[in-house]
Amino acid sequence: MNKIFGGIVLLGVPLSVAGSLMHWPSLVMFVIYCVTIIALSSFMGRATESLAIVAGPRIGGLLNATFGNAVELIISIFALKAGLVEVVLASLTGSVLGNLLLVAGLSFFLGGIKFKRQTFSVHDARHNSGLLMFAVIVAFVIPEIFSMSMNDSETLTLSIGISIILIALYLAALFFKLVTHRGVYVSKKKEGNAVEKSQEEPEWSKGKALGILLVATLAVAYVSEGLVHTFESVGESFGWSELFIGVIIVAIVGNAAEHASAIIMAMKNKMDIAVEIAVGSTLQIAMFVAPVLVLLSLFFPQTMPLVFTVPELVSMVTAVLLAIVISNDGETNWFEGLTLLAAYFIMGIGFYLL
């Protein structure tokens, strides 16, 4: 599989450049761009997995989430530049749904088939539950409610204020988990397992992994700009709305790296990392990427207030509550994964028909 992705990258990047210069049909370029980004994401996933072995599950999960979300952040910036605000908001919704339902669901389902019962840190699960409730239910729902009695300027001001608070709290959460309370809730058994796992050899050295991450990120930035310009014509060809393109297509392509990484970790019974990628990525999207995009939109002709549609909000709140109920006990199985997947496909059908 790694050789296949390597071949796609070697072929896809030059084709992306050639097709852009020669103005190939949008549908052809859309396929080339998507496949190339997914292949590049696989290299980013392998690089972050190598770093995770060296750094440990928490930092490793954070790295996977960060570089995975970097792809979506890059795509969203170019979409904002093109004035596709609805696509950006929909892609943020899709990331929340994709991570909590699709990624976690596939991880729990495939891992649960191989291992009857898989466990992860219940303390991390409960800590993340509170942040998920705050980030999605409080910070996303409040602007929608207040915006009903505000003008556009006031709504944008509210969004800017909320964005600053979200970024500050996200940085505080990282400081809490990685500095002040690092290892506080880790049992001796877990510590022993961590030492044992640290003996695992990474695929690439630290320097090589960081170099590949940098090159892959730059390549993704170039390809993403071209991808954004194909959305309108592709949507017209297939009858897809901007909402569906953002929620399903952009979210899946933009988060391919952590999707693959989380599933691989679950298949290896490394559930702490798998859950950290799925939930940590959701928190990073809601508490960092979304507010950063709101602030960045101030530099573009069309600003982006943090106001979602009602179907987007209801879907995200439902995904958060379902994920919390399933993960709060610190263990999972294949049926719980199937439940999350069923919820994702139900919402996917809804957004397609909307």
Rank of each mutant, 00 (worst) to 15 (best):
H181C: 07
P143V: 10
G280W: 04
V195C: 08
L63A: 14
M271W: 07
S233R: 09
L27W: 11
V71C: 02
V320E: 05
I263D: 11
G112R: 09
N328E: 14
M1L: 14
G98C: 11
E276W: 00
F134C: 05
V71G: 00
A194V: 10
G239K: 08
Y344A: 03
A290I: 07
K208N: 09
S149I: 14
L243D: 09
R46W: 13
L306I: 10
P311C: 12
A323M: 11
L158K: 07
K188R: 12
H229R: 08
F244K: 03
T309A: 13
I167E: 02
I75T: 04
T157I: 13
G60N: 09
H123E: 15
G183F: 09
T282P: 03
F335H: 09
A209E: 07
K81H: 12
V17C: 08
K116W: 12
L10Q: 06
L21T: 11
N64F: 03
I4C: 07
V85K: 01
I349F: 15
S91L: 00
L178K: 06
S237A: 15
G6Y: 11
A79Q: 02
T157M: 14
M271C: 08
A135E: 04
V320W: 02
Q118H: 10
I75N: 00
L353Q: 14
I74F: 01
A172D: 10
V317W: 07
V220N: 01
N255Y: 04
L174W: 04
V136S: 01
P202S: 05
L40Y: 08
V138W: 12
I75F: 05
L171C: 13
G280K: 03
G6T: 10
S153I: 13
N64K: 10
K189R: 12
L178S: 01
L101S: 06
I8C: 06
V71E: 00
F30R: 02
I162R: 03
V31R: 02
M22E: 13
L97C: 03
A319Y: 02
E49V: 11
S261T: 15
T48G: 02
A55K: 09
A286P: 00
L218S: 06
M271Q: 13
I37C: 06
L293S: 03
L295Y: 03
L51F: 05
T217M: 04
I37S: 01
F351Q: 08
V307T: 12
V289W: 02
G207W: 13
E258D: 13
A79C: 05
L100D: 08
A55H: 11
